[in-house]
């Protein structure tokens, strides 16, 4: 996390006379908090406060109409006996563990493709990026559902290729591929980041490797991947966290119920159903905290293991 910390400012060098140093420092701190105030208030009221509140609620039975009742670990015990909860965990994990790598692989492949051509790269880059802007919108969820329903273009295409007819929307085995395709369709954002990373890779490295007789695949594994590893790591982290939070598309495609047969019951959706549909706020808070802890752990593990495979070139401190 070291790079995430604020870098020391060079300003001190030119601070006024040493006598006034303390007073100036205090004045700086006052100004600092003056400027920081909006964020600080927001952080305390909209982030830190609610986090603590929901930690408390996770140990209560609360339905908004009665005061919260302390029930200890009961919510957590119930969670792990709740088959729909376990289903939502499964659905979300598959989506994250399969969808994210697929999306990133697509992004990297296209980035490599675009990087190897020169002309019109800007055009393709922009065009491929467009889905990332609108992919999470309700409009696209509606379109996606139509494309994959009975008699939709995917059904027609697959039937034409000799597969059994039938839309994907109604088939619990195919809704997950459908959702992953929707995520993959939005490969543009990580692709743009990959492209920016690829530009930083010195061409001389490739040329030297070519001279040494390394093939394309070899060059990819021993130059591109290591040189790109910070970007891969960044994309992986970002996309993993985003994937955990998918909501609008699942909500629209399943009509808010996570169906068919719970196959699109994403964690967020189930949390919404329990918290806001059944008014079981305590239970939903427990769900939220389990997720926060899991995401925290995943992030921690990613940062820890990243030391082994992420190579920072000299200029990054």
């Amino acid at each position: 996390m070291s790079t995430l910390q604020a870098q020391p400012l060079r300003a001190e060098a030119s601070a006024p006379a040493p006598v006034d140093y303390r007073r100036a420092r205090r004045a700086e701190t006052r100004s600092g908090y003056f400027f920081l105030a909006p964020w600080l208030i927001g952080f305390l009221l909209l982030t830190a406060g609610p986090m603590l509140a929901s930690l408390y609620l996770a140990f209560t039975d609360y339905n908004l109409f009665r005061d919260p009742k302390w029930i200890g670990l009961e919510n957590f015990e119930k969670l792990f006996n709740d088959s729909r909860y376990l289903q939502s965990v499964k659905v979300t994990l598959i989506y994250v563990l399969v969808g994210t790598p697929v999306k990133l692989a697509a992004a990297l492949a296209v980035a490599l493709l675009l990087n190897s051509g020169r002309k019109a790269q800007g055009f393709y880059r922009s065009a491929f990026y467009a889905p990332s802007l609108i992919g999470a919108s309700v409009s696209i969820a509606i379109v996606w559902k139509a494309l994959f329903s009975d008699g939709g273009i995917v059904d027609l295409g697959m039937t034409g290729m000799g597969f059994q007819p039938g839309g994907w929307v109604g088939d619990p085995d195919k809704t997950m591929p459908m959702m992953i395709l929707l995520a993959t369709w939005q490969f543009g954002a990580p692709m743009v980041i990959f492209l920016a990373g690829l530009k930083q890779v010195p061409r001389e490295l490739y040329e030297a490797a070519s001279v040494d007789g390394a093939g394309a695949l070899r060059r990819f594994w021993s130059i591109t991947v290591p040189m790109l590893s910070p970007v891969i790591f960044f994309n992986l982290l970002l996309e993993t966290i985003n994937a955990f939070q998918v909501f609008a598309s699942a909500f629209i495609i399943s009509g808010g119920a996570g169906g068919p047969a719970g196959s699109t019951l994403f964690y967020t959706l189930y949390l919404y159903i329990r918290g806001f549909g059944d008014a079981r706020m305590g239970y939903a808070s427990a769900m939220a905290w389990v997720l926060a802890v899991v995401i925290g752990l995943i992030t921690w593990v990613m940062f820890r293991t990243s030391k082994g495979w992420v190579h920072y070139s000299g200029e990054t401190k």
């Binding site: 329903s149 009975d150 039938g166 839309g167 929307v169 109604g170 088939d171 169906g259 068919p260 047969a261």
Partner: peptide
């Protein structure tokens, strides 16, 4: 069931 899902509501 998948037919029912698709014609819903």
């Amino acid at each position: 069931a998948d037919r029912i899902t698709q014609i819903s509501p």
